[in-house]
Design a protein around this nucleic acid. Structure first.
Length: 293
DNA sequence: TCCCAGGCGAAAG
DNA sequence: CTTTCGCATGGG
């Protein structure tokens, strides 16, 4: 099935920018499990991977276009958002380079556990961790000859022992995940209700749990709870902001977040993701250069 | 062998 | 308030 894409749209940038961890590229098609469905998709037509159509398959529910529209945030008016955050030369460069990158509307429970896994880890390893948790605790999904597993239900991770989670390579984060799973499975932590709360209130609730600090809470709020003003500060964003904005020179993470809110406004989260890609892309090239030398 | 990776919690200054 | 350290694991 094909659906026309909102403009601009770049599937590669959207799926490979490190916001979601389970997408795999096989022979020109992206595969993943999303909200209990296996998805196979690719961008066709359009110029320079901008525009065109999204060709996709879903299973076991066939042709679930509503899932696609919601997950890829077709409801976001990206041109208007980019106009609003395009405040200076630095962010302008990031927007030009990664135009068409869209935030995703991830499932909050999976997003929470994925980002608890992210502490002192790498994008690649987080993907490994989430895949292993899914293989161990989820159920099998297949599409177009590609086999994967759904992300586990809260009850599945809450039911066993911490050690079983640790066996997926989760390390010191295992206890945090087990505790979060028990909170969600029991209903004590209601992630859906956080979607309806204000950013500050939802964040305060997330911060009550061990293993969830400012940065991870902001990621969950931005990537799954529709808080587009959220501006997660990780080590890359810290470096980028301190190095490119005089107001952030020697600034703490709290001051960086305050500056971003003032400077970029209600869509600061979009600015964050463009800057993240921008700084990480250029820096990875630098490191490669150093290693080769 | 050493360093780094989408951090966090605890302890101490 | 800030700084420092340990924390498991995998890849370069």
């Amino acid at each position: 099935m094909k659906i026309s894409l909102p403009q601009p749209f770049n599937l590669k940038h959207t799926l490979e920018c490190g916001q979601a961890f389970r997408w795999r590229l096989v022979e020109g098609w992206y595969f993943a499990a999303v909200r209990g469905q296996a998805i196979k998709c690719r961008q066709v037509g359009g110029a320079g991977n901008i525009g065109g159509e999204l060709e996709f398959f879903t299973a076991p529910e066939p042709d679930n276009a509503e899932l696609i529209r919601d997950y890829f945030r077709f409801d976001d008016d990206l041109p208007a958002i980019l106009r609003e955050i395009d405040k200076d030369d630095y962010i302008h460069g990031a927007i030009e380079k990664y135009k068409g990158l869209r935030l995703l509307r991830q499932e909050p429970w999976e997003c929470l556990i994925s980002y608890i896994c992210s502490a002192a880890s790498s994008v690649r390893k987080i993907g490994q961790d989430v895949d292993r948790l899914s293989a161990a605790f989820g159920w099998e999904l297949c599409i177009g000859g590609y086999a994967t597993h759904s992300f586990p239900a809260p009850e599945a991770l809450a039911g066993g022992r911490t050690m079983e989670i640790c066996k997926c390579g989760i390390g010191f984060r295992s206890g945090y995940i087990h505790e979060a799973a028990k909170a969600v499975a029991s209903g004590r932590l209601d992630l859906e209700s956080l979607q309806r709360k204000k950013y500050e209130d939802a964040k305060r609730e997330l911060l009550e749990y061990k293993g969830i600090g400012e940065k991870i809470a902001d990621c969950v709020l931005l990537f799954s709870l529709d808080k587009l003003e959220s501006f997660p500060v990780d080590r890359w964003i810290r470096r980028a902001m301190q190095g490119n904005y005089a107001e952030c020179r020697d600034a703490s993470d709290r001051k960086i977040r305050a500056f971003a809110a003032k400077h970029f406004g209600r869509y600061a989260g979009y600015a964050q993701e463009y800057i993240y890609q921008y700084v990480r892309g250029t820096n990875q090239q630098k490191r490669h250069y150093i290693v080769r030398r």
